[in-house]
Design a protein around this nucleic acid. Structure first.
Lengths: 167, 167
DNA sequence: CTTGGAATGTCAACAAGGCTGACGTATCTT
DNA sequence: AAGATACGTCAGCCTTGTTGACATTCCAAG
């Protein structure tokens, strides 16, 4: 067990290795569910989960730059570039040269890209909604609290920056 | 917004698209943190996340068969086989032909395998523990509830089967 | 007892999507 | 004019997913 009996030994049972292991396995199985629906939709096309992530965050922050997206997704530019190239080639994403800084490319979803993004996020949201509904508002608050505490500080900053955006 | 105003319009604010989106993004960023520490350890070796998963579940269910592991991990047997082959070659896992059914291979961790499994799960547990501690027991209960509701039914069965195992 | 089907596991080859390294180009900043 | 920054791209590697083909073993029907 992880905790010494020094801590008045009663309120800390949720920190036992056993409880932590259950949390770890719950994370593993739940994440599979979390990605399953969009993956199913994408499986029929030439795209994958990486494309979904790019579409999601471009949707969230229209006009974002490549560098910005890079730091949110936490991948290398070569990796992102491969994805973006195909999205742009297929007219799901448009890339516009920056007005102030012409080195930057600002990314936007096209109508076609918005449609796919919506289909994917609808599927994912449906599952999330039914999980939320089943668990109830108190559980949901706890869910978010634990997840936020689990992030790296850098990621949490990215997350917080997006969190309370208008829409 | 997702919910019609029909539902007495007050207790269901946690089911708005906005709230669901935050949950989705929290899942994304938290999962990165969740895997970051073991990944860092594995990055220095010739192994990856797939090896970690195999070690974890063999540790959990010593003597499990390949087929069993397959259904837990949700990958094809060919994919798992590659991982197992290297783990066996490096003497982290031992594979014994079944006594009753000689088609089956029963999998066990060697001492070396146990040591690596422990190192990886220690790292992951440390992060989980500090997240749990930061969020508190009520939040943790909610966390688990939502995750369980998010799983596919098949996965939930796998999860439940492991959940209350002795050790 | 034999034979065919089902189940288990292995090997081979391919694709997606990460990674590093190196380089070119345009643009901004000093 | 020089250096830094933003972006794109080529080449090559690794992990980890996929399908297809095949060997072994078990079991049940004839």
């Amino acid at each position: 067990m992880a905790e010494p009996a020094a801590n008045s030994g009663q309120a800390l049972l949720f920190l036992t290795d056993e409880q932590l292991r259950k949390g770890i396995e719950a994370m593993f199985f739940a994440y599979r569910g979390f990605t399953a629906d969009p993956d199913r939709i994408l499986g029929d096309m030439e795209y994958g989960r990486a494309h979904h992530r790019a579409l999601h965050f471009i949707h969230r922050s229209p006009g974002t730059t490549v560098n910005n997206l890079l730091s949110i997704l936490g991948v290398t530019k070569q990796s992102l570039n491969r994805v973006l190239r195909s999205l742009i080639a297929d007219d799901l994403v448009s890339s516009r040269v920056g007005r102030q800084d012409k080195r930057e490319r600002h990314l936007y979803l096209t109508d076609k890209g918005s449609a796919l993004e919506r289909a994917l996020s609808d599927a994912q949201r449906d599952r999330m909604r039914s999980a939320y509904r089943a668990a109830g508002p108190v559980a949901v608050a706890g869910f978010r609290q634990v997840l936020e505490a689990m992030m790296d500080t850098d990621m949490r900053r990215q997350y917080e920056a997006l969190k309370d955006r208008p829409a």
